[in-house]
Write a protein that binds this DNA or RNA. Structure first.
Lengths: 204, 204
DNA sequence: GCAATTTTCGGTCGATCGACCGATTTATCA
DNA sequence: TGATAAATCGGTCGATCGACCGAAAATTGC
């Protein structure tokens, strides 16, 4: 019954890191508690002791990873000295970084797991909703500074940008980029569009 | 011998339809050969007889569904009487239709399965690559008729549009739309942008 | 009508899964 | 130090998985 919070940093954190590693390598379908325990070098029963269940481990993993990213996000969107185009470029840098670290794979796997598991869906959805809200804020700033967003509302721009990034991740994981589809290049090009709009509005 | 002659449907087709149904309801993680066989009303061993393995069933399922969609796609992109904005609207209609029929769920589940399974990835990737190539053609047409695509190449536009649609599907499956993120509404709004560009170019 | 082939069927195998248990060790604090 | 709780450990349970088998039935070709 005892379900302590991560007090002894060692084992529970080791398990989360191991779960991340296994999820990167084998995906959600190939993720077994035994694999995670083996990767962590601890007995199987430790998973249920620390996280209660396999699902508990996954939810804890997502919050663990998301916590690592929150500071980064706040730093990006809180820095008012950056132009919107510079913020966009930075977001693209983050995507490259997250692909390299394997976080994208984990996020997409958990997202897919959410399609079947309402509890997982809630956690992932809330996180992505948070990101989209941040994007909407930037879009509202762009609306003010650049003079409108064409036919789009700020919320619609945020939904589109969020979809484009998530879809790009999916395409990348499928290997489309290596097959000639310029996924990330196209995302970065969008920064040029913002730059054009910014130079127009500054000349006004 | 009063056997129902009307229900002489091929067993393999029955199995594919059953697999589609199970995949819609339980996702890839919850897809077992026994569930499929039960949903189809045939013995388990029929799956391995007709498709060799579980993976063989999945690959056949994707090609089965994709074949149903190919005619529709060709009809959309082959109809030169439609304006680009009308083509966009129709694509949005198709998305609604595919969400309703459950095809989106199946496609996304198979796509996710491809992240771990190279053979599944190849089939899904080739199909999506085909769609993106079609979009690129439309983008080239837009480039000619509307006078350029801003900083984007046709291939980049295709990559962005493809990502946006796939990402929208993922967001929809997560339930983000019901939480106030205007996913499909934003996609449709993009048609307005095309209409603006078309009216400008016609006035030229 | 008969032989060859295709298809259907029930049953079972070995492997793996998540979960759980009791016993043992380690850490915490009076 | 001794008592109490937290944490670790090996082992095992029932369930489910994909795959496979040989026999039976249906279909096809001659």
């Amino acid at each position: 019954m005892a379900r302590p919070a991560a007090k002894k940093l060692e084992t529970s954190t080791t398990l989360l890191e191991a779960a991340k590693k296994v999820l990167r390598q084998s995906g959600y379908a190939g993720l077994s508690t035994r694999d995670v325990a083996a990767a962590a070098g601890v007995p199987l029963s430790q998973i249920h002791y620390h996280f209660g269940s396999k699902q508990g481990l996954l939810l804890a993993l997502f919050e663990y990873l998301n916590g690592q990213l929150l500071d980064r996000q706040d730093a990006l969107y809180g820095d008012k000295s950056l132009s919107i185009a510079e913020q966009w470029d930075k977001a693209c840098d983050y995507l490259d970084e997250d692909i390299g670290s394997g976080y994208v794979r984990v996020l997409q796997e958990l997202s897919a797991a959410g399609w079947s598991d309402p509890e997982v869906a809630k956690v992932v959805r809330d996180a992505i909703k948070g990101w989209i809200d941040l994007i909407a804020e930037v879009a509202r700033r762009a609306e003010r500074e650049l003079g409108g967003l064409g036919p789009f509302s700020a919320e619609e721009v945020a939904a589109l940008v969020g979809s484009a990034f998530i879809g790009s991740e999916s395409h990348y994981l499928l290997g489309l980029e290596r097959r000639g589809v310029p996924v990330r290049q196209a995302l970065r090009r969008f920064g040029d569009l913002i730059r054009i709009a910014e130079s127009k509005s500054s000349k006004r």
